[in-house]
C-alpha cells in the first residue's frame, strides 16, 4: 500500500469509527428501561442518524427558510465582506506603506482600533446597519481589512529599493514603478493573508447572524434558532455545513494564490 493510500485509509477509519461510536453510544441506555438515562445523552450532541434526517428535513419545502438558502446567505455575505475587506485593506496598506508621514500620522489610530476586539463592535454595527446583509458584510470587512492592511503595509514597505532603482534606470515613471514593482512586490504579502482572511470573514458573518435573527438569515441564525428550541441535531447540521463551507472557501483561495504566485520558488514544480 502506498503512503498516500495508507494515510487516506486511516483518515477514513477514524471517521467511520468516530461516527459509528457516536451513533452507538447515544443509542444505548446506561441503565436499562429507565427513560432518559442514556450512556451519552443525544439531547446534547444528537446522533448521526438524526443529523442526517434533519439535514434532509431542513432542505425540504416544509421549512420556510431552507438550509440551502441560509448557506447562500452566509456565503454571499462572506464573499462580499472578503472582497471589500481585501480591496480596501490592500489600497490602504499600499498608500500608507509608501508614504512614511501618513503612516506615522495614522499609526496610533490604527493600533488603537486594531487592539479593540472586533467582536465588541458587533452591537454597534447592528445599531448602525441593522440586522440584514449589510451588517454582516460590515463585520466581515472590519476583520478582513486589518489583516490585509497589515500584510500589504509590510509588503509595500519592504520593497527592495534596488528593484525600484533598476526600474528607474530602465526609464520607468513613478506610475510605472507603482504598477510594475511596488504592487507585485506587495501582492506577494497580500496573498499570504488571503487564506486567514476568508476564514475570519466567515467568523464575522456568523457572529453577525447570531445577532441578526431571521431577517439576516444564514447558518449563524440556524445555530441561534436551534439554541432557542434546544435542538442539537439542527445545530450539528449547521456546524457541519459551516465546516465544509470554510474548507471549500479556503481551498478555493489557495488555488487562486498558487496560480498568481507561481513565480515563487515554493510554488514551482507542483
Amino acid at each position: 500500500m502506498s503512503e498516500k493510500l495508507k494515510i487516506n485509509f486511516w483518515r477514513l477509519a477514524i471517521l467511520v469509527v468516530g461516527v459509528g461510536a457516536w451513533e452507538w453510544l447515544t443509542g444505548i441506555k446506561a441503565v436499562s428501561k429507565i427513560p432518559g438515562l442514556y450512556f451519552i445523552d443525544p439531547f446534547f450532541i444528537s446522533r448521526p442518524s438524526k443529523i442526517v434526517e434533519r439535514f434532509f428535513y431542513l432542505n425540504s419545502d416544509e421549512v420556510r427558510l431552507t438550509l440551502w438558502q441560509m448557506l447562500l446567505s452566509t456565503v454571499e455575505s462572506t464573499i462580499i465582506g472578503f472582497l471589500v475587506g481585501v480591496s480596501t485593506g490592500f489600497a490602504a496598506g499600499l498608500v500608507l506603506g509608501r508614504n512614511d508621514r501618513l503612516a506615522r500620522i495614522f499609526e496610533p489610530y490604527i493600533i488603537a482600533f486594531n487592539s479593540l476586539p472586533r467582536i465588541a463592535l458587533v452591537p454597534l454595527v447592528t445599531m448602525i446597519f441593522g440586522f440584514g446583509l449589510l451588517a454582516k458584510v460590515v463585520l466581515a470587512w472590519l476583520i478582513v481589512f486589518f489583516i490585509v492592511f497589515f500584510n500589504t503595509f509590510q509588503g509595500a514597505r519592504g520593497v527592495d529599493p534596488d528593484l525600484i532603482h533598476s526600474a528607474r534606470f530602465l526609464g520607468a515613471t513613478e506610475g510605472q514603478i507603482m504598477r510594475t514593482v511596488i504592487i507585485p512586490s506587495a501582492l506577494a504579502w497580500t496573498f499570504a493573508s488571503l487564506t486567514p482572511s476568508i476564514s475570519f470573514a466567515l467568523i464575522g458573518v456568523v457572529i453577525g447572524e447570531f445577532i441578526g435573527g431571521e431577517s439576516g438569515g444564514g447558518i449563524g441564525y440556524l445555530i441561534i434558532a436551534s439554541l432557542g428550541t434546544l435542538n442539537s441535531a439542527d445545530m450539528m447540521v449547521a456546524l457541519i455545513v459551516l465546516a465544509i463551507t470554510g474548507i471549500v472557501m479556503a481551498l478555493g483561495i489557495k488555488q487562486v494564490e498558487m496560480r498568481l504566485l507561481r513565480w515563487r520558488p515554493e510554488y514551482q514544480q507542483r
Binding site: 527592495d160 534596488d162 532603482h165 533598476s166 507585485p184 513565480w263 515563487r264
Partner: peptide, 12 residues
C-alpha cells in the same frame, strides 16, 4: 544603464 551586484531581476 545600471547593472547591480545584487540580483535585481523581477522574480514575478
Amino acid at each position: 544603464g545600471y547593472v547591480f551586484q545584487k540580483d535585481t531581476v523581477f522574480p514575478w
